[in-house]
Design a binder for these strands. Structure first.
Lengths: 257, 257
DNA sequence: GCGCGGCAAAGTGCATGCAATTGAGGCGCT
DNA sequence: AGCGCCTCAATTGCATGCACTTTGCCGCGC
């Protein structure tokens, strides 16, 4: 009733109930903070119950997350948090390096005062988080890069950088030593400075070496060494019945033998 | 029953009924062949009816395509084929250039005989398609790049190259002159040759200039000039109720000129 | 003691039904 | 005629129900 009168409210309303989005964001965050480890089971019912929605919605959210590579969906089986292979982790970092070079190239010398302030505030938050849990500082480090990407005003670039950064973040929980993280903060500050200064080549170099160092520091072992990895190694063998599979970007790469 | 015995069949079965995937592939293809123009409406019921599934499945497929940026999903409104802005088209090409440089860098000098044969066969097909419809040759040109990406054995790279290539393909139907396409074929052959020869720098340069020339040749006008563009231009203004919105790649474009 | 076969619980795959929202045309008012 | 309200068909948002698949478990035969 009074549809016309309510129409004004509708605008605000349209944002409010994005249930799928809420679940996606929550899960993404839980995954990158390692509250959900790779391999963790994500049954639709439990998800639905936890978030107060039906399986339909939970399922849809899992679909989105699977499209982003954070979740693995196997037919008739419980969805699990993705467990990227070491090779996939390397590939993700390679892609990320190129994408973020693009980001800083577009941004060099073009940041507004407000944006610089935002960036500095974020790095300050990173600094403060060094006392807290590792998980939070890893998340903040990742979000620094996403914040940067959001400043390009390129929705596409933002989306790809976000995705690949989350994936890289996920791999850290698999292949990195317990340590890490705090080291990147000074590099973040250097990147901001170089961006303000506006030297394209220099800032691209900085970003490149920053990510490269994170990658090589993080991805320590050519073969994963963690509790679950026997299962990981066996997975590709146990999976198939012999028939070839279309390039579904599923498991093609595993074979590094 | 006889679950153990039936297990053999299950393997074959698992491939057969991927209804969501079937719909996605069909729609993707229809979109890049311009059977579905940007702005075309995609109601869930019609889709479901056409493919013999329920709305639930059609909806899920639309969700996936929206995640890939081929479809725009607005709450409580009919889904439509995406209508990227000119700027988004440029951004997509920029990203694509970087990603495909990565592809050829990984592939240079590492192609097997079989792979080279596949590539040549594909380009032959492109050649033959010059008599046929523009749509098909555009699709084949795009698929050449995807074929290349699939040879890297990096599922992640393959996924991103595919997505961004499809998006670029989509923009061609909006911003390019009727002409085009056949020109790229000789460049494809040159790239294959350089890959076989194995000169990394050279093949990266070739790929770069190939894509760059496609982009600049294709994206002719800084402001789109096509039937529906008054609506396009007005869309961002008509959209909001004043509250800020994160760059959400929102666009409104209804057909019906 | 050990493995095989089957049963039951858990979980997914999908369709359908109902409420809510939107968009468009009709109707009256000015 | 022009303008705005109101109503209704079209369409989406979401939950629920049913069938099928998978998996763990228990008992049976060897």
């Amino acid at each position: 009733m009074a549809p016309r009168a309510a129409a004004r409210k509708t605008g605000r309303n349209s944002e409010s109930s994005d249930k799928v989005g809420v679940i996606c964001r929550a899960l993404r965050r839980a995954i990158i903070e390692q509250a959900l480890e790779p391999g963790a089971r994500l049954p639709e019912d439990s998800l639905g119950e936890r978030f107060g929605v039906s399986r339909t919605i939970a399922r849809h959210a899992l679909g989105q997350l699977a499209a982003e590579g954070l979740v693995e969906l196997r037919r008739n089986r419980i969805a699990v948090v993705a467990t990227p292979s070491w090779q996939e982790a390397r590939d993700a970092f390679d892609i990320r390096i190129e994408l973020e070079r693009l980001v800083v190239r577009q941004l060099a010398g073009k940041l507004t005062k407000a944006q610089v302030a935002d960036l500095n505030a974020h790095v300050d938050a990173e600094d403060r988080s060094r006392d807290g849990s590792d998980a939070v500082s890893i998340r903040l480090a990742t979000e620094f890069h996403i914040l940067l990407a959001s400043m390009t005003n390129s929705p596409i670039l933002l989306r790809y950088v976000s995705e690949v950064a989350y994936r890289c973040c996920l791999t850290l929980s698999l292949y990195s030593r317990p340590h890490s993280s705090e080291c990147g903060i000074t590099e973040h500050r250097a990147i901001i400075a170089a961006l303000v200064q506006g030297d394209e080549a220099r800032v691209m170099g900085l970003m490149h070496s920053h990510l490269d160092s994170v990658a090589t520091r993080a991805l320590v072992a050519p073969t994963p060494r963690r509790g679950r990895d026997l299962l990981d190694i066996l997975a590709p063998y146990a999976e198939e019945d012999g028939s070839e599979r279309v390039v579904k970007m599923a498991k093609v790469a595993r074979g590094r033998a």
